[in-house]
Computed example of a mutant assay.
Amino acid sequence: MVKAIQIGLGHWGFSWTKEVIPRVPNIEMVGYVDSNPEAVKRVQDELGVEQALCFLNLEDAVKGTDAQLAICTLRTEAHYPVVKRCLELGLSVIVEKPFATTIAQAKELVALAKENGRVLMVSQNYRFQPAPILAAELVGAQRFGPVNLVSIDFRRHAPTQGYRYWDMPDPLLADMSIHHFDLMRMVLGDNPKRVSCRTWNSPASPFGHNPIGVATLEFEKGTIVSYRGSWMSSGPVTPWAGEWVMDCSEGQITWTSRDHFMGKSGPDRLSLQALDGAAEPQELAPVEFTDRVGTLAAVAKVVETGAVPARFSSGEDNLYSLALVQATILSASRSGEWVEIAEVLQ
């Protein structure tokens, strides 16, 4: 069993407390932390958490428990200082994306985790679904040869779907596209080289910042990704992972993932279509722990055994996903100029 404390019990953190943590069998919760007494009282009243396990600050929680892992589910701006302090106190950490506000902060956290011999994982939950896992395996095995072009579409109409972060800067690229950018890296088994991006708003939009964008991304092995995303689309809704068409030298791989919303759900889907052949739907192997449960189960296993699995989203690995977000934002601010990933990582 891995002994853990959770830090951040607000709206999203409470969701982790209620829906995610109890589903990971090798996690033993020894503490819950939030500076807001009302948030602490809520987990006690609604979830039956013992008062003795609740703390109003991190220092007391660490002194009062023998925790090995910190589950950081705070607001984004609190990620860097809290994760840093957790690592300094000797804890391994899993944290929601983005795990830092700047590349410099992210690099500092990665270095600190290495220095202290601790695990730092970013909860990139879209990785823990059957379709992208199979897509990554097919690309790795060169099922249809090299991947030449990837086309990705994400379409949602936020005003009719309960979205509420109207004033968030870069609501598409920073809040949503980071999932798609991370999946690009995982599925292609490659890192980005440079990007060009344009974003804009629509007249009827309640967003204060641009919710629509297009980007062209060039990867190190030569694959080009054409990405189109919108929070203001009036077209057919896509699953959360978007709709992917991967054009290879000898055929196509098409897939989509996380087709669920507000109580409705559908399975992941993946089809193979050989050159001049018909599309053939593939049977997807079940994933034992999916989505956020998958990320927490993965980090618990690494803390427990020291063995790092394939496609593990460590802080060091996630630097490139964070860099993609910052590079696309920078390119959009420069009216679509190409931005080298190396420039952002520096």
Rank of each mutant, 00 (worst) to 15 (best):
residue 72 C to H: 03
residue 126 Y to M: 13
residue 147 V to N: 01
residue 288 E to T: 15
residue 74 L to C: 09
residue 273 Q to D: 02
residue 93 V to W: 08
residue 25 P to E: 03
residue 184 M to R: 04
residue 139 V to A: 04
residue 234 S to M: 07
residue 186 M to C: 00
residue 346 Q to V: 05
residue 228 R to P: 00
residue 89 L to R: 13
residue 227 Y to F: 12
residue 7 I to N: 00
residue 34 D to G: 08
residue 21 I to T: 05
residue 39 A to D: 00
residue 244 W to R: 06
residue 112 L to C: 12
residue 113 A to L: 06
residue 171 P to Q: 12
residue 308 V to M: 10
residue 220 E to Y: 10
residue 70 A to L: 05
residue 305 T to P: 15
residue 36 N to L: 07
residue 83 V to S: 09
residue 329 I to R: 03
residue 34 D to H: 11
residue 77 E to I: 09
residue 80 Y to P: 11
residue 130 P to Q: 09
residue 27 I to W: 06
residue 98 P to T: 02
residue 212 I to D: 13
residue 310 A to H: 04
residue 260 H to N: 08
residue 320 Y to R: 11
residue 341 I to S: 02
residue 87 L to G: 10
residue 247 D to G: 11
residue 35 S to T: 14
residue 37 P to N: 10
residue 106 A to K: 02
residue 72 C to S: 11
residue 53 L to F: 13
residue 153 D to Y: 01
residue 203 P to D: 14
residue 216 T to L: 06
residue 188 L to F: 01
residue 110 V to S: 05
residue 186 M to I: 02
residue 103 I to P: 05
residue 249 S to T: 10
residue 26 N to C: 10
residue 259 D to E: 02
residue 64 G to M: 06
residue 196 S to V: 00
residue 149 L to W: 12
residue 224 I to C: 05
residue 124 Q to T: 07
residue 125 N to L: 14
residue 172 L to G: 03
residue 344 V to Q: 07
residue 90 G to K: 07
residue 267 P to M: 07
residue 330 L to N: 04
residue 337 E to G: 11
residue 146 P to R: 12
residue 212 I to M: 08
residue 71 I to K: 08
residue 179 H to T: 02
residue 333 S to K: 11
residue 215 A to Q: 00
residue 208 G to I: 02
residue 239 P to V: 03
residue 62 V to Q: 02
residue 272 L to D: 01
residue 13 G to W: 07
residue 262 M to L: 10
residue 57 N to L: 12
residue 278 A to D: 08
residue 191 N to I: 03
residue 175 D to H: 08
residue 201 N to M: 01
residue 173 L to K: 05
residue 310 A to L: 13
residue 95 V to W: 13
residue 26 N to F: 04
residue 72 C to V: 15
residue 138 L to D: 04
residue 38 E to G: 07
residue 275 L to D: 00
residue 276 D to M: 11
residue 74 L to I: 14
residue 68 Q to K: 09
residue 109 L to P: 13
residue 50 E to K: 15
residue 233 S to Q: 07
residue 142 Q to I: 01
residue 35 S to R: 11
residue 200 W to P: 14
residue 293 V to E: 10
residue 221 K to V: 03
residue 275 L to C: 05
residue 18 K to S: 13
residue 335 S to W: 01
residue 164 R to G: 09
residue 243 E to P: 11
residue 214 V to N: 09
residue 116 N to C: 08
residue 28 E to M: 12
residue 216 T to G: 04
residue 132 P to F: 06
residue 311 R to W: 09
